[in-house]
C-alpha cells in the first residue's frame, strides 16, 4: 500500500492536533514552515488558527506559490482558517491561496460568544450508518458561495454550507481535529490514497 506522507502547515494554529491524529491513523506526518518542507509529501492539511497570521507568514516566507503548485498536484484539506486560506474569495483583505472555487465569509457566525458545537449529517462519511458528525465551530467562517466543480458535502440545519469538496481539495468550516471522531481524517487519507 502507498505510504501517505501528509504535511501540516505549521506556521500557527492547531497543527499538533492534526499531526497526532494522522499518526494514530498510520500516516507519516510532518510540520511545514518553509517551502522546501513540501518536497516528497503526498498531501497537505492547513489547520485552524488565525487566517490573517497564517497568510502573512506564508507571504513573508515565500510559501504562496509553492503551496499553489503543491495544491495543483496533490490533495489538500483546510479546516476553518485553512478553508479561508484555500478560498478564491473572502470578505476581508488578506493573502489567499485562491485554490478552491468558493467564497468564504469570515467570522460568519459572530464572536467567540457565538462559537458552537452541533451534530452534522455528512453523507460522504456515513456508509449508510446515518451516524452524525459532532462538529465544533470556533469563530468560524461559512461557505457563502460555491462555484464550478466545488460541491457542498455538509450543511447546518438551516442550509448553511460548512464543508465542501472540489476534486482533490477538501475544506471544512469546523474542526475535526478537536474531537475524537476520526472519520474526516480517514476520508482525507482515502482521498490521498486514491490520488
Amino acid at each position: 500500500m502507498k505510504t501517505l506522507r501528509i504535511g501540516v502547515l505549521s506556521l500557527q494554529g492547531a497543527f499538533r492536533e492534526h499531526i497526532q491524529i494522522l499518526r494514530r491513523l498510520g500516516a507519516e506526518a510532518s510540520e511545514v514552515r518553509l517551502p522546501q518542507q513540501l518536497h516528497g509529501l503526498t498531501g497537505l492539511i492547513i489547520p485552524g488558527g488565525e487566517s490573517t497570521t497564517i497568510g502573512k507568514l506564508a507571504v513573508t516566507y515565500g510559501l504562496m506559490d509553492p503551496l499553489r503548485e503543491f495544491a495543483a498536484a496533490h490533495p489538500v484539506w483546510g479546516t476553518c482558517a485553512g478553508l479561508i486560506f484555500l478560498a478564491k474569495e473572502t470578505d476581508s483583505l488578506q493573502p489567499l491561496l485562491g485554490v478552491m472555487d468558493i467564497f468564504a465569509k469570515r467570522n460568519a457566525f459572530g464572536r467567540q460568544v457565538d462559537s458552537f458545537e452541533t451534530d452534522l449529517f455528512v453523507p460522504v462519511l456515513e456508509n449508510g450508518t446515518a451516524e452524525p458528525f459532532h462538529a465544533v465551530f470556533i469563530r468560524s467562517p461559512y461557505i457563502a458561495a460555491v462555484r464550478g466543480n466545488a460541491g457542498v458535502i455538509a450543511k447546518l440545519s438551516d442550509g448553511t454550507a460548512v464543508a465542501v469538496r472540489e476534486g482533490k481539495w477538501l475544506a471544512t468550516a469546523f474542526h475535526p481535529e478537536l474531537t475524537s471522531d476520526l472519520r474526516f481524517h480517514r476520508y482525507f487519507l482515502q482521498m490521498s490514497r486514491d490520488d
Partner: peptide, 30 residues
C-alpha cells in the same frame, strides 16, 4: 432569528468547554 432558532433546537450548544478551550488551541504558535 435563524441563528437563535438553530441554537435552540437542542442539537446545538454554545459556550461549552470544547469551544472555550478550542479557541485557545487556535491561538497556539502565535
Amino acid at each position: 432569528n435563524q441563528k437563535t432558532e438553530l441554537k435552540d433546537n437542542g442539537l446545538t450548544q454554545v459556550g461549552g468547554i470544547t469551544v472555550k478551550r478550542g479557541l485557545a488551541q487556535m491561538l497556539k504558535g502565535g
